[in-house]
């Protein structure tokens, strides 16, 4: 039962049928997504194969510097994805976002692999890299949503913010609602995921473990830890990033620096 069935190259290519369906849909209904689907497919293949080879190498060598380096590359990649989604040029948010992501995700991954799962050494790549990857992937989306929302609202509601500043509000008071809405918009998806998990969907990691022959009762324990970890790391990184970036939306006189487009 625990025998893992390998997917041959031919079988892997057969899975491209799904892409053909997506391409056909886009083509027939002029969705304009053909190019993105092609690029996405190529990237899925190349990035995952690359990751596969890197992980094989790392698992063999067991070098903590290598493990942290891979983690760093994952954070840098996440940063570029956020930059592509947020597209904000006026406010410098990249550097604080990068450092917050690196530190808070590292702390979360360490807490999970070192304390909850209790692995020695803490950087054991078999646990540390998947945990780190899940934290980065989920919180990255949350940060992109929160940042995009805050910049947009700050621009759209500039006059309302200035009205409050003119009545003696400090920048924190004048942007309180914008800040709250932006942080919660980023956190809602990971909270919603806790609502639907096990009923509506079986998460990827748990599916993977079950497919690989793990006892479902062990797999769910891992999944519970992961779900909680994702909510916590999202909250931690969102709050820190948003506090720093919100200050940067205001100048030295606590004036709004963003102007409506």
């Amino acid at each position: 039962m625990n025998q893992i069935i390998n997917i041959s190259t031919g079988q892997l290519l057969l899975a491209l049928v799904f892409i053909l369906i997506a391409q056909a849909t886009s083509f027939i209904y002029h969705l304009g997504l053909n190019r993105d689907i092609t690029i996405g497919t190529l990237r899925t293949f190349s990035q995952l194969f690359l990751m596969g080879y890197v992980l094989t190498y790392i698992l063999k060598t067991s070098n903590p510097f290598l493990v942290v380096s891979v983690f760093m590359v994952m954070v840098v990649s996440a940063m570029f994805i956020i930059k592509g989604r947020v597209r904000e040029k006026q406010i410098p948010y990249i550097i604080p976002t990068f450092f917050t992501m690196f530190v808070s995700y590292l702390a979360t991954a360490l807490f999970v692999s070192g304390l909850i799962i209790g692995i020695t050494p803490w950087w054991e790549p078999r646990y540390f890299i998947p945990a780190g990857g899940m934290v980065i992937g989920n919180s990255m989306s949350a940060l992109a949503i929160s940042l995009e929302r805050m910049f947009r609202d700050m621009r759209q509601q500039k006059e309302l913010v200035e009205m409050q500043l003119s009545l003696g509000a400090n920048y924190r008071e004048a942007s309180l609602n914008i800040f709250r809405n932006a942080v919660s918009a980023g956190m809602i998806p990971s909270i919603n995921a806790m609502m639907g998990v096990g009923l509506v969907f079986i998460p990827g990691m748990m599916s993977g473990q079950i497919l690989a022959g793990t006892d479902p009762l062990i797999a769910i324990r891992y999944q519970i830890v992961v779900m909680l970890m994702l909510v916590g790391s999202t909250a931690l990184s969102s709050i820190i990033v948003m506090l720093i970036v919100r200050r940067r939306c205001f100048g030295s006189g606590e004036e709004v620096l963003l102007s409506p487009h």
Binding site: E159, L165, S166, L167, G168, N170
Partner: peptide, 21 residues
């Protein structure tokens, strides 16, 4: 004015915008 806390300054010098918010 740069040496006055902005919120303090704006509670003493109140600006009313052209379009009321």
């Amino acid at each position: 004015t740069t040496s006055i806390v902005p919120a303090k300054l704006r509670s003493l010098v109140s600006y009313v915008a052209q379009i009321p918010q």
